[in-house]
Every structure is written in structure tokens, then in C-alpha cells.
Design a protein around this nucleic acid. Structure first.
Length: 196
DNA sequence: CAGGCGATGTCCT
DNA sequence: GGACATCGCCTGC
């Protein structure tokens, strides 16, 4: 069953943790790919210096200010895309960065998109990697992830997550005190996370 | 095998 | 004009 908008409209820290174990699905002309979300990070908008939305509503961040449960994709370092889901109570421009997936379906397609190296652990173990493997580009900006019609959604298949590790986010040293917040979550012991 | 660094384009000051 | 929620190659131990 597909996660509904109300799943994303709660406290972003709760949603970020509960997304672990859910399955991200993307149906494209090349085929369908699916991966279990194993690592996330929360970005709490106006009160979080590490968040893009901290600086306000701009062309890039506008989806964070307008709707929940939608995809926020941005280009990083001129090369890679990072995939986030807009979240939080209304009027809070928050989001959840998906940092790693455990590939479960369409693995050959993912590998082909990633250069055909044949290493399943190197397909989705990082935000840039999983965007490439799942076929997520800025064309997917603003897509509503709460309906099947878009071909881009998150499913609950009943997977139980044992233990969640809470730690600091990656690459946010510029955020001062906020860099120390424990807003990164991953499934402890999972082999598909981006790094320990 | 760890650490350094270049690629490359958009955003914001 | 500087910085960037990354990745992978290259080097040197």
C-alpha cells in the first residue's frame, strides 16, 4: 500500500525514521526499479542552518513551501542529483533526504544506468548513486509521491525494522551548531548504507 | 586502503 | 564569485 500524504505531514523526524524499511518505486520507459529505504536524513527548514529552505523560498526550494509528499530533486556539484521528499506540518518547509536504498527489483536496469559494474552494493549506497540507479533527475522535481498514477511512489510492504541508528548528517559542516544534530537515520547492520 | 582532489553547473550573495 | 546534503579516480603508504 502506498504511503498517503498524512504520513509525511507529521513531525519530519518521525517520518524520516518511519521511512526506513519502506520501498521506493519508480516506473519508467526503461522499466520499473524498486529499493528499500535504509538511510535517511531530516532537514528542518527554517530552524536548521543545514537546510536549503533555511534561506527562504527560492526557485529551487519552492516545492518545499507548497506541498507535502512530493519529490524535491536538486543538482549537487554540477553532476549528481539528490532526491528528497517534502514533509512536516503545513507551512514548515521541511524534507527528508533519501541517502541509500537496498535494491530489490529491476537490479539489471539499475546496474546498466550505473555503468554495468555488477556490484549490487555500489548501486544505491549514496544520494547521487541512488538517483542515477533509480532514474531520478530534475525532470522528477515536484512529482506527487502519494498516488500510483505518477509511477513514482513509496510503498509499505510490511517490512519490520529492527534497530535504527541515529547520528550526525553527512557533509553539513558549514551549518555551525546544527551540524551536531542527530538527524541521520539508518538501519543498523544493513549492508547497503552510504557509510558508517 | 585511506586521503586528496577534480569534475561541472546552478544557486545565492 | 564562492560554495555546494557527491562520487570515483589517483596517489602514496
Amino acid at each position: 500500500m502506498i504511503l498517503e500524504r498524512k504520513f509525511y505531514m507529521r513531525d519530519t523526524l518521525i517520518s524520516a525514521k518511519e521511512l526506513l524499511g519502506k520501498t521506493l518505486v519508480h516506473e519508467t520507459s526503461e522499466g520499473t526499479t524498486k529499493g528499500i529505504i535504509v538511510e535517511t536524513e531530516a532537514y528542518l527548514g527554517k530552524k536548521d542552518r543545514a537546510a536549503h529552505a533555511y534561506k527562504g523560498n527560492t526557485e529551487r526550494t519552492r516545492v518545499l513551501f507548497s506541498s507535502k509528499g512530493c519529490s524535491y530533486v536538486y543538482l549537487i556539484y554540477g553532476i549528481y542529483c539528490c532526491f528528497n521528499i517534502s514533509s512536516g506540518p503545513a507551512d514548515n518547509p521541511e524534507c527528508i533526504l533519501i541517502r541509500a536504498l537496498e535494491p530489490v527489483y529491476g537490479i539489471e536496469i539499475m546496474d546498466k544506468r550505473r555503468g554495468g559494474k555488477g556490484n549490487i552494493y555500489n548501486l544505491c549506497s549514496g544520494p547521487g548513486k541512488l538517483s542515477e540507479a533509480m532514474g531520478i533527475t530534475r525532470d522528477e522535481y515536484g512529482i506527487d509521491l502519494t498516488c500510483r498514477e505518477s509511477g513514482f511512489y513509496v510503498e509499505d510492504t510490511g517490512i519490520k525494522v529492527d534497530k535504527i541508528k541515529e547520528t550526525t548528517r553527512i557533509g553539513v559542516d558549514y551549518a555551525g551548531e546544527d551540524a551536531a544534530l542527530l538527524y541521520r537515520f539508518y538501519i543498523e547492520g544493513n549492508k547497503f548504507i552510504s557509510r558508517k
